[in-house]
């Protein structure tokens, strides 16, 4: 394995976070079994105290998850020079079969952890801990996923040997390679753009409708998820080539590098936040019947939706401006 500080840091971080989440779930199980909000018994007081620990642990774990997601991608990009044929993070991730699964699971866990934080935030606003059961059930789902993520990362890093011939984004994302990724890239440009802009517009409309009327929250949440996928597809299939000003450079990771003015950040940060908050709205809606949350959820939901719509809009703006101001010409008039 490659003995690099960043890799050690990532593995260490992932291990610690996994242990934390497992410990938190352990407490969570106790809470689920014995929780009785009406009782003033010493056990109940003790359980309530434990929830503070769980919240703190989870808040911490989620922050680390987020940072390590960034670090993971950054590191993969940096290390590309050590692999023959790798020109960016994609090459590094392809060095063995665990690379992309690890990244995918990291993304999923990022969203799940974010949703947990949202549930926790809303739960704290209701005076009788109304979301305590769903919260800790989610935790029980998250724990094995985190452990798996650690396992995948470990397998990936242990299996990394420098000098391995790997494929670079040109060959995966170019239209002659036979992978899903290449199919995404090989749709005719105009079709890609039409799909992208349609989906994004629908998402924005769903959001605005929800903000104004308070209805259709589930639709908006679903559109947030779909919008996220469409956005990533958009980045890979055409936004990237305009940013790089190169018709075959589809890599979604290089945009976070300095060579491209770090445009990846104003692109991805709003997108991820928007998707997370949009999904969060969906996560909250099933609970709006609870008495203590009857006012809170519509209020919070609306607030989240506003930020989410703003995020998607910002992403769209940055992407479109990158295309408009690019020197690349793909369509001859």
């Amino acid at each position: 394995m490659i003995f690099q500080p960043a890799i050690i840091a990532l593995l260490l971080g992932s291990l610690v976070v996994t242990i934390m989440v497992l410990a938190a779930s352990g407490f969570g199980v106790q809470v689920l079994r014995r929780w009785n909000i009406g009782s003033g018994s010493e056990l109940q007081v003790k359980l309530e105290r434990q929830t503070y620990l769980i919240s703190t642990l989870m808040g911490f774990a989620c922050t680390i998850e987020l940072v390590s997601l960034l670090l993971f991608v950054f590191n993969a990009d940096r290390m590309a020079s050590q692999f023959v044929g790798a020109m960016c993070a994609v090459g590094t991730l392809n060095a063995n079969e665990f690379g992309f699964p690890a990244l995918t699971l990291k993304l999923i866990n990022f969203f799940l952890a974010g949703i947990w934080l949202i549930l926790n935030y809303v739960d704290n606003k209701g005076y009788d801990y109304p979301l305590i059961k769903p919260k800790y059930l989610l935790l029980l789902v998250l724990a094995p996923l985190m452990a798996t993520e650690f396992g995948l990362q470990l397998a990936y890093f242990l299996g990394l040997e420098a000098d391995i011939i790997t494929s670079c984004c040109g060959s995966i994302f170019g239209s002659d390679a036979n992978t899903v990724a290449s199919e995404m890239g090989s749709l005719p440009l105009s079709t890609s753009m039409i799909i992208f802009y349609s989906v994004m517009t629908l998402t924005l409309l769903a959001g605005v409708f929800f903000i104004l009327t308070g209805k259709g929250g589930i639709v908006f949440a679903a559109m947030s998820g779909i919008g996220f996928v469409a956005a990533i597809q958009g980045v890979i299939s055409f936004i990237s080539i305009y940013i790089y000003e190169h018709p075959h450079h589809h890599c979604p990771f290089d945009v976070i590098q300095g060579g491209y003015n770090y445009i990846g950040y104003p692109l991805y940060i709003p997108l991820f936040s928007a998707a997370l908050l949009g999904l969060g709205v969906g996560g909250l809606l099933p609970f709006r019947q609870k008495q203590s949350l009857s006012e809170v959820i519509p209020l919070v939901g609306r607030r989240f939706a506003i930020v989410s719509v703003a995020g998607f809009a910002l992403f769209l703006t940055v992407a479109t401006l990158s295309i408009v101001f690019s020197n690349l010409i793909m369509f001859e008039k």
């Binding site: 003033g40 007081v45 005076y127 009788d128 801990y129």
Partner: peptide, 8 residues
């Protein structure tokens, strides 16, 4: 008051 959790 007695059934309120500590937070509230």
């Amino acid at each position: 008051l007695s059934s309120l959790p500590e937070r509230f």
